[in-house]
Amino acid sequence: MIKRFFSLIFVVLLALVFLPLVTEIKPLSELGMTSAKYAEDGAAELGAANLVTSVVVTYRGLDTLGEVTVLFITTAGIGFMLRRKTILPEKKRRASEILKSGTSFLLPLIILFGVYIFVHGHLTPGGGFQGGVVIASAIVLLMLSDINMHPDHNILNWLESLSGAFYVIMGILGLILAGGFLDNRFLPLGEFGKIFSAGAIPVIYSLIGLKVGAELVGILNKLGREDK
């Protein structure tokens, strides 16, 4: 009882702390030194219309590499912890016909939308992580509609490792041919605001999307399906 009371008080206090942040927010009159540099030079230097993208992929690209590595470690940890020896056979109910037909109709659409999100990452909101999550959701829909569906371990592992390796290779190419690690300017910058612009950013984002999607499908596969 006392624990419930304290958690209630805690949530209300948290709300009171965050309320002024929301109601009294004003646009900053002037930016700090780092953000001012990003905001002024970012679009002209890297050619990406979405400034968040140029910060995530190029200026702070090393951090993104770290985040993807954390996801990889999570996958490995879940695979290590959920390894089971004996499996009792379990009864399941098959999905209905409408769900199966709907899945076979919607699956290409969802995957195409995920590809759109990470290829257009430098123009519209979204990017590699979001696109990867959308693709993983499509595969999960397939797993929900068919109880015998098992995504192949080997293909997932190869996809993940290859896209991770190519991500690092793109970074090193930037180090050799342009200014620094993960610099996107070794490919032509192109016309501002078109698909083929912003140098290597779409390529790097596609690799991040493939890697994140493969990792998330791996996690859900280990949670939901046992190895025979």
């Binding site: 109910r93 999905a95 209905s96 409408i98 769900l99 709907g102 109709f105 919607l106 659409l109």
Partner: peptide, 17 residues
């Protein structure tokens, strides 16, 4: 239009079962 009927169908079937 595509997605909404599928989810409500699956939920109604589950609730009946």
């Amino acid at each position: 239009i595509f997605t909404n009927p599928i989810s409500s169908h699956a939920l109604a079937r589950a609730a009946h079962y």
